[in-house]
Structures are given as structure tokens and as C-alpha cells.
Amino acid sequence: MSIHAELKMKFTKHFGDSKQPVSIFFAPGRVNLIGEYTDFNGGYVFPAAVSLGIWGLLRRRTDGVIQLHSDNAGSGAVIDLKQTLVCRQEDGWTNYPKGVIQYLVDQGLLLQGCDVFFSGNLPTGAGLSSSAALLILTAYMLQTTFGNSGLDRVAMAQLCRKVENEFIGVNCGIMDHFAIAMGHKHHAILLDCNTLTHEYIPLSLDNHSLVIMNTNKKRELTDSKYNERRQECDQALAIIRKHRGIEHLCQATMAEVEGLLEQPVLRKRARHVVSENQRVIDAVSLLRAGEVSAFGGLMIASHRSLQTDFEVSGLELDVLVEHALQVPGCIGARMTGAGFGGCAIALVENQALDKFMQQVRLGYQAVTGRIADFYPAIVADGVERGAIHEG
């Protein structure tokens, strides 16, 4: 049975039969190859959409009610479009589509009733942007079904970031939403988060594969120190601004970081941001020149900076990365996403993939007691209608 047929069967089992057609959509997750915590600091990032993701099925109703259900969560919500929607902790995952619905209505989109079914193979709380995928998927489904709200893909990413910032309460940057909306198969995106100018960079890895390594330690951004790190970056920027009128922390020089920030914690946070921004620029240059091994070295340097200066990795991510780097054929590894659990990525020779996953899984379990999952990353297109991704 195909994925589409299986999903439609689950949809019908939950919502019942109808003469109305069922439309299928897919939003990918994303990995960030390098450039962590630079997005909300006005710097560069280098993400790619991946074939793990979330499917959404939608069927029109004849009333003013939107019914939501998640196959993965086993729960849902019934939304009356006549009511103003607010974020409530007890509503859990449904706050994300609720926020998109409210913001699209505020944009003037004339929504109608529909049944919406979500199902995916993207692990939640793993640093692969499941929340951003759910936001973008909801926005794309509703816009496609009920008419254009005037938002192109970039504006849709901006709206979904606004939902996450204001409705959900997470001070995230634009990278995740942008990558999921704008992804391009076999390419990573060099994105300037200050201007949103971007360039697609072919991802040619010279007989190497990207492997996603899931610690299976979930983290919630609102429950982590993510917002605290953002506040620390803002404090560092405020100090540097007293001496030079920069707009974003990524515009600071390393001399300014070392010379103007007297508090050790703020100096460390800013040192990561400024050095990581330069690593993104260097990484793109190296990949364009075919220097894949040198790119792997930048991945390692990025993880060390996130580990010691930004302090967002944690035991599980550090153990995964260290064991990955001990396996012959692995030329680079780093955490990806916000940290505090979630996923890391590794750059591994194709012929060494099986041995790599076996050795790292055993070593990680011996230290942490957890079992890691591994997914060879297939770089995919952004959100789309009718996609089939079985990889």
C-alpha cells in the first residue's frame, strides 16, 4: 500500500466518508549544516530541507468548524472559526495550527470549515524543526485550499515565525520556517537572516553522506535555556552598541567581543556568534571548491564552540559527536538545532555508513543508556502538495 493510500485510509477511519475530495500535502523537516544561533543575531545560516517530515490531509466541510487530528499524538481539537483563538498550555500541539489559523484570518484569508489530519515520520523535540514544519504545513494547506492570502513563500515563513514568537512565545529566528518553505532538492540554502537574501548552493559531498543522529532526548524550546541565550546575546549587543552603532551581534568584530565584553559569560556567547557566522561563510566557500574534508573540520569547530562558548549541547549530544568522530570515515560531526538534546549530524564516507551507525549506537548506549536513531539525510524540496517521501 502506498503512503498516500495508507494516509487516506487513516483519514477516513477518523473523520468518516464524504463526497468531498481529500488533498494531501507534505512539509519537510530541516537540518542546519552550520550556523547555529546566528539567525536571530542577524547572521548567516546554511540549512537544508530533508525528506523526513509531516503529511497533512485536508477535506472541506460545509460548516464553520476546523477539526484537527494528529495520528502521531493521538489527539486533536475542534476550532470554531467564529471565535478568537488564544494559546493555552493544555491545548498542546494544537496551539501551532491554531496560531496559524488566527493569523491567516487576521491577514484577511476567508477560511471555511475543514477536516485536517496530520501524520509524520519527523521526530518531535529532536531539533529537526517539527514545530516549524507544522506551522508551514498548516499555512500552505489553508492558503492553497481557500485562496491566496497575498503571502508568497518568504512572507509565509515570516508569518509562521511571527506565530511562534508571539502566539506560542518562543523567541526563535527565521531559519527553520524559511528552510521548510523554500527548500530545494539537492541544495542547501545560504541565508542572510538580516536581509533574507539567499542563494541555493549545490550539496556535492564527494562520496560522503550526511547522517542525522537522534539522541532520543527530547527538548522543548520553551522549557530550555533557549530564551536565556537570546537575552544574553541581546545584552552583549547592547554593550557593543555603546561603542559602535551595529544593528546585529553578527556584525561585531572579534576584537570588539574580546575587548568590550567584560562579563565572561557574555564574551563567550558573543564569541560563538561571531565565529560561527564566519564559519558559515567559510563553509560555503569550501564546498564550492570541493573541499569536503575541510568543511567537516568546520563542523567540528562549530560543535566545540556550541559546547564550550554557547553551552547548549549537553551530555547526549557531546557523546554522540565524540563517538562519531572516533569512527574511521567520519570527517565531521556537530549538533544541529537549538541543542539541549535533539539531533546531531555527521559527514561519513558512504562505504563506512553501516559500520559507523553500528559503532556509534553501541558507544552512545554504553555511556548514556539511551538508544540513538540514525537517518541518512536526503535533501528535499520545501513544502508542497501531493508529495511522496518514503526515504
Rank of each mutant, 00 (worst) to 15 (best):
residue 288 R to D: 01
residue 137 L to S: 01
residue 378 I to L: 08
residue 190 L to T: 04
residue 39 D to E: 07
residue 380 A to I: 01
residue 283 A to S: 07
residue 186 H to S: 15
residue 377 A to N: 02
residue 182 M to N: 12
residue 151 L to M: 11
residue 116 V to C: 07
residue 329 G to I: 06
residue 101 I to Y: 10
residue 244 R to L: 14
residue 38 T to P: 00
residue 114 C to N: 00
residue 358 Q to H: 15
residue 95 N to Y: 08
residue 134 L to V: 04
residue 174 I to M: 08
residue 173 G to N: 09
residue 114 C to E: 01
residue 193 C to W: 03
residue 292 V to A: 01
residue 212 I to F: 05
residue 235 Q to R: 14
residue 111 L to K: 03
residue 139 A to L: 01
residue 105 V to W: 15
residue 350 N to Q: 15
residue 275 S to R: 13
residue 190 L to W: 08
residue 209 S to C: 06
residue 248 H to P: 05
residue 316 E to R: 11
residue 329 G to N: 03
residue 2 S to L: 11
residue 321 V to M: 05
residue 203 L to D: 00
residue 274 V to L: 12
residue 161 R to D: 07
residue 64 G to R: 14
residue 335 M to R: 13
residue 310 F to H: 07
residue 122 L to N: 00
residue 376 P to D: 08
residue 143 Q to H: 09
residue 71 D to P: 04
residue 197 T to Y: 12
residue 261 L to C: 02
residue 157 A to W: 03
residue 82 K to S: 09
residue 78 V to K: 14
residue 325 L to A: 05
residue 284 V to G: 02
residue 331 I to N: 10
residue 174 I to Q: 04
residue 238 A to D: 05
residue 176 D to P: 10
residue 135 L to R: 12
residue 232 E to D: 07
residue 372 A to D: 03
residue 35 G to T: 08
residue 283 A to R: 08
residue 218 K to I: 04
residue 258 E to R: 11
residue 312 V to I: 15
residue 237 L to Y: 05
residue 128 L to Y: 06
residue 217 K to S: 13
residue 250 C to P: 08
residue 76 G to I: 09
residue 139 A to N: 03
residue 351 Q to T: 13
residue 315 L to P: 05
residue 348 V to D: 02
residue 44 Y to L: 13
residue 86 V to A: 08
residue 81 L to S: 06
residue 297 G to A: 05
residue 253 T to C: 10
residue 183 G to F: 08
residue 235 Q to F: 01
residue 188 A to G: 03
residue 76 G to F: 03
residue 214 N to A: 04
residue 363 G to P: 10
residue 340 F to S: 13
residue 11 F to H: 02
residue 215 T to M: 04
residue 258 E to G: 01
residue 151 L to T: 09
residue 219 R to E: 04
residue 88 R to E: 11
residue 205 L to D: 01
residue 308 T to R: 08
residue 229 R to N: 10
residue 71 D to W: 07
residue 29 G to A: 04
residue 230 R to L: 09
residue 215 T to P: 06
residue 264 P to N: 14
residue 166 E to W: 00
residue 39 D to N: 03
residue 156 M to H: 02
residue 220 E to Y: 05
residue 95 N to W: 06
residue 35 G to S: 01
residue 6 E to P: 00
residue 39 D to H: 07
residue 275 S to K: 10
residue 52 L to I: 07
residue 5 A to K: 15
residue 257 V to P: 10
residue 10 K to Q: 13
residue 30 R to I: 08
residue 82 K to N: 15
residue 339 G to K: 14
residue 318 D to C: 14
residue 276 E to F: 08
residue 53 G to R: 11
residue 150 G to A: 00
residue 25 F to L: 10
residue 219 R to N: 15
residue 129 S to L: 05
residue 383 V to I: 12
residue 290 G to R: 08
residue 169 G to C: 00
residue 248 H to V: 02
residue 63 D to H: 04
residue 17 D to R: 12
residue 274 V to C: 03
residue 308 T to K: 06
residue 275 S to E: 13
residue 56 G to V: 06
residue 344 A to P: 10
